[in-house]
Design a protein around this nucleic acid. Structure first.
Length: 1006
RNA sequence: GGGCGGUUAGCUCAGCGGUAGAGCACUACGUUGACAUCGUAGUGGCCACUGGUUCGAUCCCAGUACCGCCCACCA
């Protein structure tokens, strides 16, 4: 059946996908030659909730190109596929789904019930992205699909946690962390986006205690007094008035002379019945605001540091939903205790945390509501810094003045949760951290010494900068969906409590970190003593609650006939929190290969070869994989990291649903085919910068596929595929055109290899585009037409078959579907194209003589076509050609390629001799031609044409002369450059002379 | 505030020491033995600006302007 006129992606892609799946073409080690080197890629696991967007399409296209390229070379390839459980994202999706279908909430159904729902959801809806990857043509090993919550992965995660805990690389602590009030969980620094928003700054007066006053003096740079006032207050500025309720002090810079008289004195905290001290610290900037800063240790990262330095109490004002606390004792009771603490009464972290110093009237308010109230109340109390504002009453046309608080409109950088988009609160809570400082060294060294290479190199600087300034990584999340932290808590009793009879429970917990609950229980039993009964409690949501539970249990155990002070039973809880998703993603390379088992795959494919990922997750993922793999198995996870930019729309705008500019890769595939999308992705992939996706461009590459298709169809119509079997080496050819195209093919192979070696997917794509369209279709197919009728017919058919075979092979990594389809419909094939050997012929096949000769032929054809068009010779009209001068090379070239030139330039007769009057003249290297067109041509137009060419030539000759006549050029420039310039000049001058003669000739006619 | 990158044809981008390339768009012509998802021929650029290095700079260096992106606690 003859080939259709066009490739039909929709039909062919489905058919070919099924073929590849059935034959498991992506299986690890498929097509590998014995003893071949391994080449492995770990897919950046998409979220299990995800669907394929353009970023995935781009990223996976590049991976597939590399994998197919290596597989065809006979390397032992593995492309590991899988998905990430994506803690927050998935929990969010499932909760939304529960709400939508009016099912009980997460809290109502409890942890176990909810997790069952998540799994149910995962089985039904999760992983659609995997099937979408297949539509893109991704040749992963589908049988090895991994999931960060399945198989050996949970085990691997737990083992790593335990190892890092034992190595003191993981610790628990009460720290100020970023708290997401929407999801009610801590998040890491990286999950915080700082967004500039419009805010306000208010100025408040904190009145000195006991009616004290001082001289407030401002001076200019020369020491001249510019302002002097007797004051009974200190002025502070804040953008977050509601936090003043928890202030522990007011800080000024030690060198700030304005406040020197009152350092150490106490001030009244407005709206509160507390006094706080004025302290000195390096943190306040005397030139900013009033120079005095309120210190709220529990709700600001800077203040936290100051409060720690000065041992100030950090009173927590806000609850997990970012409302003003409503828990604990009444305000009166709390504030009384706070005063005692301020006066030196002993206390501890837990007591301070339990004290709720929010006055009753603000309790339960959202923090933004509380802010308004606080400002209003302070203003009402006359403690806001105010100014007189003039108002014009329009009706009476009279002015009146009012005293209003100073509110500066100000752009402030406000932290937002990257998922929830709500304002993040710094919150003092108990969390788990990776002590990154302890594991960062090897990750830095590996890149510094080249064990891992980052492409483009600028990525290394970003990597270094972040790692060199790394902060502890908060890894605990107050979520349910994820890897639960493998730590169990019992009361903080000394070893062998039953025997020693220790009753002093003290504060905090005793932690038991173990891979399994049974191991933890065993460790606990060992710790408390064999006689102590350990009851395993339900994990409660907040660890604080678990703590209280444990203490009560001990008190209860003191009843009965057991002597006071002896412990007979303790309660024991697992930490309810789960790990940051990136903690498990960080183990993706070893986790997917079966670690902690020492599997064959681990031995063969680890460290992996190349990681291809977006530059946006260099910190989230790349740096952490480096640290974790090095910490756990002591090896880099990958040898090369290729970082790419974000895919944007044609104008460079971020694709977003709200902007309505999202380009769905599946729709693109439906419309243009996967190959067009893939080729477009490859062609966009130059290093660095933004990737602008233009559907017009994709259409262009679809057309490119059609072009190749039709070249093959042309071959079919000319019997090229009959009895053809593909061969690695090209056929022996005599005809110059055949020798030439074989050489061009070899040149292209070498360009593609070099480009892919350097991760220059764009250069590989462009080399192939230029070759297939610009060389094979534009020229070679045309050359073949006359050759099919001549003495070289057989070798031309063989050459064309070989060249098209090679085109399919070389294009296959980028355009797998159309090439596989063509492969199957042409010739006799031993294997699928996907498993066909990548060629190894060298550029020795490039035939310089053939190249030179075909350059002459194509230039001559171009010149004739150009001349014809410019003097408006009708396309259908055949013309005569006269060779006025012919060098021996040019004559031979003519003779060998006469049929080609005649056909493509549409020449009727060819003679040698002088030009007839009224001819147009062509000057080539080694030859000059005339086309007699008396009566047909417009003399003036031909003159204009020649003059234009002459102008261009003169300019070039002028430039070359200037260069060659400069003595410094001859002295300093390399010899070959000088020779080249000389040869160039000679050639230009020859051409110019011929054209000059032609012009003179025209002048005689005209 | 710190860091990284960009500025080349109308648009999107290659090129990165020997005076400019591609695709798209545009113009004209076109039933040429595959292809109109095409062919042929064309139009279009002081390579952001200012200095410097060099025989020679779009390319190297310095500065300026503008545009991106990342990081950052200024109350």
């Amino acid at each position: 059946m003859p080939m259709e006129k066009n490739f039909t992606p929709a039909e062919a892609e489905a058919r070919i996908s099924a073929l590849w799946t059935a034959q498991k073409v992506g299986a690890a080690g498929a097509n590998a030659k014995p003893g071949a080197e391994a080449f492995s890629i770990m897919i950046p696991p998409p979220n299990v909730t995800g669907s394929l967007h353009m970023g995935h399409a781009f990223n996976n296209t590049l991976q597939d190109i590399l994998i197919r390229w290596h597989r065809m070379q006979g390397h032992d390839t593995l492309w590991q596929v899988g998905t990430d459980h994506a803690g927050i994202a998935t929990q969010m999706v499932v909760e939304r789904e529960l709400a939508r279908s009016q099912q009980p909430t997460r809290r109502d159904m409890g942890r176990e019930g909810f997790l069952a729902k998540v799994w149910e959801w995962k089985e039904q809806s999760g992983g659609t992205i995997i099937n979408q990857l297949k539509r893109l043509g991704a040749s992963c090993d589908w049988d090895r699909e991994a999931f960060t919550m399945s198989g050996n992965f949970p085990d691997a995660v737990t083992k790593v946690f335990v190892k890092m805990y034992n190595d003191k690389q993981i610790y628990r602590g009460k720290r100020l962390v970023n708290w997401d009030p929407h999801f009610e969980t801590a998040i890491s620094d990286l999950e915080v986006e700082n967004i500039e928003v419009k805010g306000h700054m208010w100025h408040f007066k904190y009145i000195l205690a006991d009616g004290q006053t001082y001289d407030y003096v401002e001076k200019d740079a020369t020491g001249q007094v510019t302002f002097r006032e007797k004051r009974n207050y200190i002025s502070i500025a804040t953008t977050r008035p509601e936090t003043m309720l928890g202030d522990g002090a007011v800080a000024v810079h030690p060198s700030d002379a304005r406040y020197a008289p009152i350092v150490g004195k106490m001030v009244h905290l407005p709206l509160c019945d507390r006094l706080i001290p004025i302290i000195t610290d390096e943190y306040p900037d005397p030139t900013f605001g009033s120079g005095a800063v309120k210190i709220t240790g529990a709700h600001d990262f800077n203040d936290y540091q100051v409060a720690k330095r000065h041992n100030l109490p950090m009173y927590r004002l806000i609850d997990t939903r970012a409302q003003m606390r409503a828990d604990g004792a009444p305000y009166e009771v709390a504030v009384q205790r706070a005063r005692q603490i301020a006066a030196g009464s002993p206390t501890d972290e837990n007591e301070v945390d339990s004290l709720n110093l929010v006055p009753e009237k603000y309790r339960g308010l959202d923090r933004f509501e509380a802010r308004k109230q606080v400002v209003a109340d302070i203003t009402a109390a006359g403690l806001a810094v105010t100014i007189l504002v003039k108002h014009l009453d329009e009706e009476t046309n009279s002015e009146h003045l009012t005293l209003e608080p100073v509110v500066e409109a100000k752009l402030i950088m406000q932290p937002h949760g990257d998922r929830s988009k709500v304002v993040i609160e710094p919150m003092l809570t108990d969390q788990w951290f990776v002590d990154t400082a302890k594991i960062v060294g090897p990750a830095l060294d590996a890149v510094r010494n080249g064990d891992t290479q980052i492409i483009p190199q600028s990525g290394e600087r970003t990597y270094f900068h972040w790692l060199e300034n790394i902060e502890p990584w908060c890894i605990s999340r107050q979520l349910w969906w994820g890897h639960q932290i493998p730590v169990w808590y019992g009361p903080n009793l000394p070893r062998g409590s039953f025997i020693t009879g220790a009753a002093d429970v003290g504060g905090g917990f005793k932690e038991f970190c173990a891979a399994t609950g049974a191991d933890a229980l065993m460790a606990a039993q060992e710790w408390y003593g064999p006689e102590v009964k350990i009851s395993v409690g339900e994990p409660s949501f907040r660890r604080e609650a678990a703590f209280v539970g444990a203490i009560q249990n001990i008190s209860a155990s003191q009843l009965g006939d057991v002597p006071i002070g002896q412990v007979t039973s303790v309660s024991f809880h697992r930490d309810p929190d789960v790990l940051d998703t990136w903690f498990s993603s960080g183990l993706w390379p070893i986790g997917t290969l079966g670690w902690p088992e020492q599997t064959d795959e681990l031995a063969k494919y680890f460290p992996t070869s190349t990681l291809i990922t977006g530059a946006d997750i260099i910190f989230f993922w790349v740096a952490r994989m480096m640290m974790m793999q090095l910490a756990v198995v002591g090896e880099v996870p990958f040898k090369t990291v290729y970082l790419h930019g974000l895919v944007r729309d044609a104008k460079g705008k971020k694709m977003s649903k709200s902007l309505g500019n999202v380009i769905d890769p599946l729709e693109i595939i439906d419309e243009y085919g996967a190959d067009a999308l893939r080729f477009s992705n490859a062609a966009m992939a130059s290093l660095g910068g933004v990737l602008k996706l233009d559907t017009q461009r994709i259409a262009g590459y679809r057309n490119f596929g059609t072009k190749l298709w039709n070249a093959c169809r042309f071959a079919e119509m000319n019997g090229v595929w009959e009895n053809h079997t593909t061969t690695a080496e090209p056929p022996t050819a005599k005809a110059t055109a055949n020798r030439w195209i074989i050489g061009e093919t070899a040149r292209t192979l070498s360009e593609v290899n070099a480009a892919l070696n350097d991760y220059r997917f764009d250069q590989a794509a462009n080399a192939l585009y230029t070759f297939v369209w610009g060389k094979v279709c534009d020229w070679y197919v045309e050359f073949a037409k006359p050759l099919f009728d001549g003495e070289h017919a057989a070798e031309t058919r063989a050459t064309m078959a070989w060249v098209l075979d090679q085109s399919m092979i070389l294009l296959h990594p980028i355009m797998p579907f159309i090439t596989e389809d063509l492969w199957g419909t042409t010739g006799t094939r031993a294997k699928l194209l996907v498993h066909t050997d990548w060629p190894t012929y060298s550029t020795a096949l490039v035939d310089p003589e053939a190249s030179k000769e075909m350059a002459f032929v194509t230039t001559l054809i171009d010149e004739i076509r150009s001349a014809r068009a410019q003097v408006h010779v009708p396309v259908g009209l055949k013309i005569d050609l006269i060779a006025m001068t012919l060098s021996p090379d040019a004559r031979a070239a003519w003779q060998r390629n006469e049929a080609i030139i005649r056909r493509l330039a549409r020449i009727e007769t060819f003679t040698e001799g002088p030009a007839a009057k009224g001819s147009i003249t062509l000057a080539l290297d080694g030859a000059s031609f005339a086309i007699p067109l008396a009566g047909l041509i417009d003399i003036a137009e031909e003159k204009a044409r020649l003059s234009k060419t002459m102008d261009k030539l003169s300019k070039e000759i002028g430039g070359l002369n200037a260069r060659l006549n400069n003595p410094a050029f001859a002295a300093s420039a390399p010899e070959e450059v000088v020779d080249e310039a000389k040869a160039n000049l000679q050639a230009r001058q020859d051409e110019a002379a011929k054209l000059q003669a032609a012009l003179k000739c025209l002048a005689e006619i005209g």
